[in-house]
């Protein structure tokens, strides 16, 4: 496949960082090729004339679905934590936070 790909390796890495996805080198290679092909398939979509067309963000007819400000029972703490990989003293526990810079 000598044709130039739509996405560079750096594009894939940048997007993977945004999505917090750890990828192996092999996955990066696959995905660079796959996503480039998919983006090519979008070329005709981009050409559809949509001037003045409103975007569809919702399909249902209703608006302003609201609930009253009423307190309802929470889960017992044990159930909140039941599925957690790691907990301590009623908290979820995660490794330390290092700020990216």
């Amino acid at each position: 496949m000598s044709q130039e790909l739509r996405l560079t390796r750096e594009d894939v890495e940048r997007v993977a960082r945004l999505a917090h996805l750890g990828l192996t080198d092999e996955e990066k290679e696959h995905l660079q090729r796959d996503l480039s092909l998919i983006l090519e398939a979008f070329d005709r979509l981009r050409e559809v004339l949509t001037e003045g067309v409103e975007p569809t963000t919702h399909l249902v007819p209703q608006e302003s679905v609201l609930r009253p400000d009423t307190v309802r029972p929470s889960l017992p703490q044990g159930q909140v934590l039941a599925n957690a990989p790691e907990t301590r003293d009623g908290f979820f526990r995660v490794p330390r936070i290092l700020e990216e810079s």
């Binding site: 894939v12 997007v15 996805l21």
Partner: peptide, 28 residues
């Protein structure tokens, strides 16, 4: 060793290739 590494590894190992493909496409 830190939470970012945990996020990357968890999502990298926990999710399959097709899911990753769509997440990347969608993020893009």
């Amino acid at each position: 060793k830190d939470v970012t590494e945990m996020f990357l590894a968890t999502r990298g190992e926990g999710l399959g290739l097709e899911v990753k493909r769509r997440i990347l496409l969608g993020t893009y």
